[in-house]
Design a binder for these strands. Structure first.
Lengths: 147, 147
DNA sequence: GTTTCATGTAACTTCGTTTATTACGAATTA
DNA sequence: TAATTCGTAATAAACGAAGTTACATGAAAC
C-alpha cells in the first residue's frame, strides 16, 4: 500500500525552517526533502490555513514559521493535514448486516481504536520544539557540523 | 488509500466455517463475504500453509478448520497473512543521512512502534473462540434467527 | 473411465490513492 | 517592466490490493 508521508515531510520542512533566520522557498524545501515544489506548496498550504506558517510571494518570498514551536504538537499537525487514515488494515464494510461480520468488526475495531488513541496521545506529547532540540543534540553530537 | 482487509475477510470466513459441520466451498465463502472465489483461495491458502485450515478438492470438497479455535489468536492470523503493514502513515525514507530527518523519524517511529505493540498485544488476546462466542451471543440476542 | 465438482495458480485487469509534473495565473520586489 | 515566487487546477505516473480470466490438477460419483 502507499503510505501517506506528509506528516513526516512537513516535520522535516518545519525543523529545517526553524533552523533558519529568513524564509525558505518551496524550491529549497523541495530539494532538501527530495520532492517537488508544487507538492511542498500544496502541503504547506494546509499549514498556512491553520496559521502555523506564513508564505510570501515574489523575490525574498518563501515560507516562514508563524507559531511558537513549543505549542505545536505532532498531533495538531496530523489534524491539520486532514487526519488522514492511520491504518492500512481495516474492515471490508462498515455497516454489515451479517452478524458474523458484526462480531468480527467489533473485535477489530476495539483493538484498532485503542491503538489509535495511544498513537494520538503520543503525538500530542511531542512538539516541534522537542524535535528541534533533538536535532540540535544530534548536530552537536557529531564531529563535523553540516546541515 | 486502499486498506488491506484480508484479516477481516479471513476472520469472517473462519467464524462462518466454525458455525458449520461440513466444509464450505470457496464459492460459498466468496458469496457470504462479497468477494471472488479466487481471492478466497488465495487468502485461505496462506492459512492452509500454516496448518490452520485444510482444503479438499472435488465433490464434497471445500475448506474446513483444522485448528482449535481457542488457540488461534488474531495476531497469529495477522502473522500468517505475512504481517502486512499496519500503518497508512509513515516516513519518507528509512535510512536518512539528514540529521533533521533522523530526528523526525526517531520521534515518529517511537510513537508508531508503541501503537503497533499495543495493537499486536490486543490482537494476541483475542481468539477465534472469542469471536465465535460473541457471534453466538449476538445471534441469541435477536428475535428472529437467520445466519 | 468418464463426468463433474472443486481447489491451485499464474497471469492480467481494474480500481483507488498518493505523489509527481505541467501549465498558467497572480502578487511582489527591484 | 522584468524577475521571482507562491497559488492552484488539471493531468499523469506509480503503486498495491482486489477482482477476473484461464487453465491445470485432483477427487468423488456414477
Amino acid at each position: 500500500m502507499k503510505r501517506d508521508s506528509r506528516l513526516s515531510s512537513v516535520l522535516h520542512a518545519l525543523v529545517h525552517m526553524a533552523e533558519r533566520e529568513g524564509p525558505m522557498t518551496s524550491e529549497e524545501l523541495a530539494a532538501c526533502m527530495h520532492t517537488h515544489p508544487v507538492v511542498v506548496r500544496r502541503t504547506m498550504g494546509l499549514l498556512r490555513e491553520a496559521g502555523l506558517v506564513r508564505s510570501a510571494r515574489g523575490p525574498q518570498g518563501g515560507w516562514r514559521i508563524s507559531a511558537d514551536l513549543g505549542t505545536v504538537t505532532l498531533r495538531q499537525l496530523h489534524e491539520t493535514l486532514g487526519e488522514p487514515a492511520i491504518f492500512a488494515i481495516g474492515n471490508r464494510q462498515d455497516m454489515p448486516g451479517c452478524l458474523v461480520e458484526q462480531a468480527v468488526n467489533a473485535a477489530l475495531d476495539d483493538a484498532f481504536t485503542e491503538a489509535e488513541a495511544l498513537l494520538l496521545t503520543r503525538l500530542g506529547q511531542i512538539t516541534l520544539a522537542d524535535l528541534a532540540a533533538d536535532f540540535s543534540r544530534r548536530h552537536a553530537g557529531r564531529r563535523e557540523g553540516s546541515t
